[in-house]
Design a protein around this nucleic acid. Structure first.
Length: 591
RNA sequence: GGACCGGUAGCUCAGCUGGAUAGAGCAUCUGCCUUCUAAGCAGACGGUCAUUGGUUCGAAUCCAAUCCGGUUCACCA
């Protein structure tokens, strides 16, 4: 049990014994003591003063004395400042924790295991991945891993938007302008290759619109009447009819894109247990229309379109089937949700989707509820804020989209430059260097995107790029490498025992932090928020670095101190590696 | 217009289930490498927590109003 849990438990017991008053652990506020006061953890007393009909001072004195007298293994002393009871935890408690944990892997499981599905990434097959996808990928992957580490059965999924008018746009452009060029013939990565034709479509479309507008058509008319758009519409019809040459082109171009995605996913360490393709799932929602009409949840308008009225819930009327009988986005999603549950009967289904779709996800869940689907309550929208540039949103039309592959390459170049300047790994082979650059570059990128609360939109400044100092991935990686350097020189001697009193301030501070690790992972899991772990890992690294500068490990005052510090180093390294691992960030042995 | 989200140091962000004098990193400035990796450490500077009112022992945190910014309310996906 964590020290905080034990303090709460002991406090509840003490109050029951002293005042015959029952309290549950969650009623008690325990904070880490502020550095300017003596003590490690603080019980906040104000909440009980009224019900116990006593003063903060009297309560604090009584409680402090009781806790120290009855929990000698936990507390060595207390002090009372206003309504705050500061408790000093015994060195021995932390030394025991250290002794038990330094060698193995942390146990991070809690609660009853659940089946959790996590959907993330969801790319379109008409353009390469960009910065926004990276936040999505890193978030989804990390949340999945955190839930897995917490003891749940997790299935990572991806829905690929591989069909529709936007896919036809790049197809038409390729057909009209490529002269048979391929990624191989041009030496272009497949997803970028196809993305270039999507841009080509836009440019052509724009030019044709301009001509039509000059002929007096309105903007809307011009948009629809542009020859390339008419072509694209026809191609979509042909695709839905399964016209062989269109299907062939579609498959060919998608396969180029997938080859490109695979390369990027591999590079950034994203993986999935199951990939859904919209082309295979988009018709699944149709049966819901019948079902909803029968149940009276949906209604049909005169023109044949089908709707659901959500105005009672404060939302709007929502179309679920077009008058021409084709299904819309939300209907497809209903079908996919059903398909997912059929394959993996989950307790929770997490959708990692940007916050611009908050309304859509709300509607999706509500419709499923109204249809009486048992899995509706398990749906959770992990809504994250968009990544913006200092100038505002990324816009493909204005060419301000930050490409994922380009960004990774840029980071690698910076990592290489820093590494060369430091001159610390001159004996590395080419392959080792390459791996190190990737580890640092992608670590920096992931940390940068994961350190912010997912809910909040974030600003990415390409000018300043991503720093390698301070609150960053490389800072933490560097700390790990430093520790490993010590442990390589001097392995731990298991035979030496380390039970004694007299921890240095920074030794204890570090132990206090390390002891909080399982609780921190739990918080990250409950909140589905990796940034909690990023901040934690940074604090551990920072505290270790202070300790490192202040106290020598290898030239410690005594053999026993040295062994203590070696174990402290080991546990710090393990904790950093574990926490960073849950963020998808590798930590090097040397850098 | 309706709904939802946000506004904390020059910049990027923590803190938000109410608790002590609001914290980090970057930037700026001062020190510290013949001693375990200076991608580091120690320190300085920097705040009307958007504004106003309310709730109470106590408010950045809760409530209301206002201002500013964003997203969304498509027979697009």
């Amino acid at each position: 049990m964590s020290i905080v849990a034990r303090i709460k438990e002991a406090t509840a017991k003490a109050i029951e014994s002293l005042y015959q008053h029952q309290l549950s652990a969650q009623d008690i506020t325990v904070n880490q003591t502020k550095p300017e006061f003596e003590g490690d953890y603080t019980v906040v007393l104000f909440a009980f003063v009224k019900t116990l009909r006593t003063s903060p001072d009297a309560l604090g004195q009584a409680l402090g004395q009781y806790l120290v007298a009855n929990n000698g293994e936990l507390f060595t002393g207390f002090n009372l400042i206003k309504g705050f009871l500061n408790l000093t935890v015994t060195d021995n408690f932390f030394l025991q924790y250290l002794q038990q944990r330094y060698a193995g892997q942390p146990d991070l499981t809690y609660g009853a295991p659940q089946k959790v599905m996590v959907e993330y990434s969801s790319p379109n097959t008409n353009k390469p991945l960009h910065l926004g996808h990276l936040r999505n990928n890193f978030l989804g992957w990390s949340v999945a891993e955190i839930l897995k580490a917490s003891g749940n059965e997790v299935m990572k999924t991806c829905i690929v938007n591989d069909r529709g008018i936007h896919i036809c746009k790049s197809m038409i452009a390729w057909q009209d302008f490529a002269n048979g060029a391929t990624p191989e013939s041009t030496g272009t990565k497949g997803d970028h290759f196809v993305g270039d034709y999507y841009v080509k479509f836009s440019d052509t479309h724009k030019a044709q619109m301009k001509e039509l507008e000059a002929q007096g058509l309105s903007k809307e008319e011009a948009e629809k009447q542009a020859p390339i758009m008419l072509q694209t519409q026809q191609m979509l019809v042909d695709w839905e009819a399964g016209k062989p040459e269109v299907m062939e082109l579609w498959k060919k171009m998608n396969s180029w894109v997938y080859a490109g995605f695979d390369q990027t996913y591999k590079r950034i360490g994203t993986d999935f247990d199951k990939t859904y393709y919209e082309s295979q799932t988009y018709l699944l929602g149709r049966k819901f229309v019948e079902e909803g009409l029968e149940q009276g949840v949906f209604y049909k308008k005169e023109d044949g379109s089908v709707w659901i009225d959500l105005t009672a819930e404060g939302l709007d009327e929502k179309l679920v089937l077009r008058k021409d009988g084709t299904s819309v986005y939300i209907t497809q999603d209903l079908g996919l949700a059903d398909e997912k549950y059929g394959e993996f009967p989950y307790d929770q289904s997490i959708y990692v989707i940007a916050d611009e779709q908050n309304y859509h996800m709300k509607v999706l869940q509500l419709i499923l509820k109204k249809l009486g689907k048992p899995y509706a309550d398990g749906i959770f929208h992990l809504s994250y804020g968009m990544v913006e540039l200092p100038t505002g949103r990324m816009k493909s039309r204005e060419g301000t989209v930050v490409d994922a592959d380009d960004l990774v390459e840029e980071m690698v170049a910076i990592a290489a430059r820093h590494t060369e300047e430091s001159g610390k790994v001159k004996d590395f082979t080419e392959a080792e260097l390459k791996e190190l650059y990737d580890t640092i570059a992608i670590g920096a990128l992931k940390f940068f995107l994961l350190r912010v609360d997912p809910k909040k939109k974030m600003i990415f400044n390409p000018e300043e790029s991503i720093d390698f100092h301070g609150f960053t991935g490389p800072f933490i990686q560097y700390t790990h490498a430093r520790i490993k350097s010590i442990l390589r020189r001097q392995p731990i001697n298991e035979a030496v025992a380390v039970n004694f009193n007299g921890l240095e301030k920074l030794e204890k501070e570090l132990l206090v932090l390390l002891e909080q690790y399982p609780g921190t992972v739990r918080q990250a899991a409950v909140e589905q928020n990796p940034s909690v772990l990023a901040i934690y890992a940074f604090n551990v690294a920072k505290t270790y670095n202070s300790f490192y500068t202040e106290h020598s490990v290898l030239s410690a005052e005594s053999e026993e101190k040295k062994e203590l510090r070696l174990r402290l180093c080991q546990l710090t390294a393990t904790t950093i590696k574990s926490a960073m691992g849950l963020l998808g960030i590798r930590v090097p042995e040397r850098m």
